[in-house]
Amino acid sequence: MRYRKQDANGDFIWGHQQNDFWLNTPDGVAQAVKTRLLLFVGEWFLDVTDGTPWTTQVLDKYTKDQYDAAIQDRILGTPGVVQITSYSSSVNTSTRVLTVTASINTQYGQTTLSTTI
């Protein structure tokens, strides 16, 4: 799996030739998971059915069980992910931020990722 690296702002990294890519590493798979989680359904014009169902299953009151299942499905559907070994999510209602933390086994090794949405 070859995946272009992103900086802390989510922008692609350029100008370092092969060092701009993750190549068959758990970190590349973790970045792919984060990218997939941040994609809303209908946002990608080439496949409007792809994406995380934020507006239909996640962003509402009393939907924790539903959104945890949807997020875990997106993680497991990422190329290179073998299994989720641990998962947690928490919502800060005052800042309206969802934090997702997961440890995953990939075909290249184990990694942990944490992302805020």
Rank of each mutant, 00 (worst) to 15 (best):
75 I>K: 00
85 T>K: 09
80 G>R: 01
41 V>S: 06
67 Y>N: 00
40 F>L: 09
14 W>C: 04
89 S>I: 15
18 Q>I: 07
59 L>H: 09
80 G>K: 01
84 I>Q: 04
92 N>C: 13
25 T>G: 02
36 R>N: 11
27 D>M: 02
26 P>Y: 06
87 Y>G: 09
64 K>A: 12
58 V>D: 04
25 T>Q: 04
61 K>L: 11
24 N>H: 05
96 R>N: 14
59 L>E: 11
86 S>A: 15
32 A>M: 08
96 R>K: 15
83 Q>W: 12
20 D>H: 05
61 K>Q: 10
37 L>S: 03
91 V>G: 11
20 D>K: 07
55 T>Y: 12
54 W>V: 06
83 Q>H: 15
61 K>W: 13
10 G>P: 08
69 A>D: 10
38 L>V: 03
85 T>G: 02
34 K>S: 02
89 S>K: 14
19 N>R: 09
61 K>C: 07
86 S>W: 15
82 V>H: 10
79 P>Q: 15
22 W>F: 12
72 Q>T: 01
71 I>T: 08
48 V>A: 09
67 Y>L: 06
34 K>P: 01
64 K>N: 08
25 T>M: 02
25 T>K: 04
78 T>A: 14
35 T>V: 03
26 P>T: 03
21 F>W: 07
40 F>H: 12
96 R>Q: 15
92 N>G: 14
21 F>A: 01
40 F>D: 14
15 G>F: 11
20 D>F: 03
17 Q>M: 04
20 D>Y: 03
27 D>V: 02
84 I>A: 09
75 I>H: 00
48 V>P: 01
16 H>V: 06
19 N>P: 06
66 Q>D: 10
59 L>Q: 09
27 D>L: 05
87 Y>Q: 13
16 H>K: 11
50 D>L: 10
25 T>P: 01
75 I>N: 00
72 Q>C: 03
94 S>L: 13
43 E>L: 10
76 L>D: 15
24 N>P: 02
58 V>Y: 09
35 T>W: 01
44 W>F: 09
39 L>W: 06
56 T>A: 09
16 H>T: 07
29 V>K: 04
51 G>D: 09
12 F>D: 09
62 Y>H: 11
72 Q>W: 00
57 Q>V: 06
50 D>N: 09
67 Y>K: 01
94 S>Y: 13
15 G>W: 12
29 V>H: 08
32 A>N: 08
11 D>V: 07
79 P>C: 14
47 D>F: 06
44 W>P: 05
47 D>I: 05
35 T>C: 02
27 D>C: 02
26 P>Q: 04
67 Y>V: 00
62 Y>E: 14
64 K>M: 11
58 V>Q: 05
42 G>M: 02
51 G>S: 12
71 I>G: 00
92 N>H: 12
93 T>N: 13
28 G>Y: 01
64 K>D: 09
64 K>I: 10
56 T>W: 04
46 L>M: 06
84 I>E: 00
16 H>Y: 04
68 D>M: 00
71 I>E: 00
54 W>Y: 13
26 P>G: 05
66 Q>L: 12
52 T>V: 06
21 F>G: 02
88 S>Y: 13
63 T>D: 08
89 S>G: 15
92 N>A: 14
51 G>E: 11
29 V>E: 03
46 L>H: 05
60 D>N: 08
93 T>A: 12
47 D>R: 07
12 F>Q: 08
51 G>A: 11
